[in-house]
Simulated scan of single mutants.
Amino acid sequence: MKTYDLNDEVEMKKPHACQANDWKIIRMGMDIKIKCLNCGHIVMLPRREFERKLKKVLKKAAD
C-alpha cells in the first residue's frame, strides 16, 4: 500500500496556512516529517495520520 518514500513531493488533503499544498518528505520512521515547499515549515506526523491525510504523490525522488 505504501506508495511514498524519502524525498518524495506529496500533496496533502488540506492546504498549509501559507496556502501551499506541496510538501517534501524529509524523514521516515514511526513518524513522518514533512517540509512545506512554500514557506519551509516542518511538521511531524504519526505514520497512520500521514497516510490518512495524504492525497497523492506529486513527484518521486528518483524523477
Rank of each mutant, 00 (worst) to 15 (best):
M1F: 03
M1C: 04
M1Y: 02
K2I: 02
K2Q: 07
K2Y: 00
T3V: 10
T3D: 07
Y4H: 00
Y4T: 00
Y4K: 00
Y4N: 01
Y4G: 00
D5H: 03
D5A: 08
D5W: 01
D5T: 06
D8F: 01
D8N: 03
E9W: 11
E9R: 15
E9C: 14
V10Q: 04
E11R: 12
E11T: 01
E11P: 08
K14L: 12
K14W: 08
P15Q: 12
P15W: 14
P15A: 11
H16T: 05
A17W: 15
C18S: 04
Q19N: 14
Q19H: 15
A20V: 02
A20D: 14
D22T: 13
K24H: 05
K24N: 10
K24E: 11
I26L: 08
R27S: 12
M28Y: 04
M28A: 03
M28E: 05
M28H: 03
M28W: 03
G29W: 02
I32M: 04
K33A: 13
I34D: 02
K35Q: 12
C36G: 06
C36K: 01
C36H: 10
C36P: 03
L37G: 04
N38W: 07
C39F: 05
C39G: 02
G40Q: 06
H41D: 12
H41I: 14
H41L: 14
H41N: 11
I42E: 14
I42M: 09
I42W: 10
V43M: 12
V43E: 10
M44H: 13
M44I: 10
P46S: 09
P46C: 07
R47G: 07
R48A: 10
R48P: 08
R48M: 15
R48G: 02
R48D: 13
E49L: 15
F50N: 01
E51W: 00
R52W: 11
K53G: 08
K53Y: 11
L54R: 00
L54M: 09
K55S: 11
K55L: 14
K56P: 02
K56R: 13
V57T: 06
V57A: 03
L58N: 05
K59C: 10
K59R: 14
A61N: 09
A61E: 07
D63P: 08
D63C: 09
D63A: 10
